[in-house]
């Protein structure tokens, strides 16, 4: 099996989870809680740290961003207001902007325009897309199709907490095609090239 997938958002990265990631074809993983020690011999998989900042005001966001080692960490902002969303889009320390059912109203045409201008990818979590209620799914459907029309890059994270939370990347591609009418090419890019480039920039091999 060819391995070229990248996971931009894994919660736990125990040895067991990373081994399953590798078996499923992932080569790059960004992790919120890294439980592996440095020097562990996990061949073929690059793991980087990841931070998610929940921000409701610009001043809070500025303070949080000041504390983070952004050069070796994937920085994701979860904006709760339109003001924060606009502000974090043009900040070069921020790598991705997280879209969840809680802040879906923040993302409008204007936001996508700014994101396209500053080439900032949108991050969406696979469990939100696959296991939410029908109302949430319909909101995601509209937003994702708008995103594609605007030609803004997006990345998909698995939000893995344990080995049984992982989903095979091919299954994600097929599910996006059948449930959300997204072209396979766009989903494959969201699971391969775009997240891999982001992780490679911050890469620290274990």
């Amino acid at each position: 099996m060819e391995r070229f997938f990248a996971d931009i958002h894994a919660v736990t990265c125990s040895r067991e989870v990373l081994q399953l990631h590798y078996k499923l074809g992932y080569t790059h993983v960004a992790c919120l809680e890294r439980r592996l020690e440095r020097g562990s011999d996990l061949v073929g998989i690059s793991v980087v740290n990841k931070v998610v900042i929940n921000a409701s005001s610009v001043s809070d966001l500025k303070i949080d961003l000041g504390r983070i080692e952004y050069k070796s960490t994937i920085v994701t902002v979860h904006p709760e207001t339109t003001e924060v969303a606009r502000w974090c889009t043009h900040d070069s320390r921020v790598d991705t902007i997280l879209l969840t059912p809680r802040n879906i109203q923040v993302f409008d045409k204007g936001q996508f325009n700014v994101m396209k201008y500053y080439d900032k990818p949108l991050e969406v979590l696979v469990p939100h897309l696959l296991y939410s209620s029908s109302d949430v799914k319909s909101q995601f459907y509209r937003k994702l199709n708008m995103l594609l029309r605007w030609k803004v890059g997006f990345v998909l994270g698995t939000y893995t907490k344990g080995p049984f939370d992982l989903v095979h990347p091919v299954v994600v591609v097929k599910a996006m095609k059948t449930l959300y009418d997204l072209p396979e090419r766009a989903t494959i890019l969201a699971l391969t090239n775009t997240p891999r480039q982001l992780i490679d920039r911050k890469r620290v091999n274990l």
Binding site: K174, A175, L179
Partner: peptide
């Protein structure tokens, strides 16, 4: 495609 999506989403 529908089947592969359903098969992989069994948890």
């Amino acid at each position: 495609d529908h089947f592969i999506a359903a098969l992989g989403l069994v948890k």
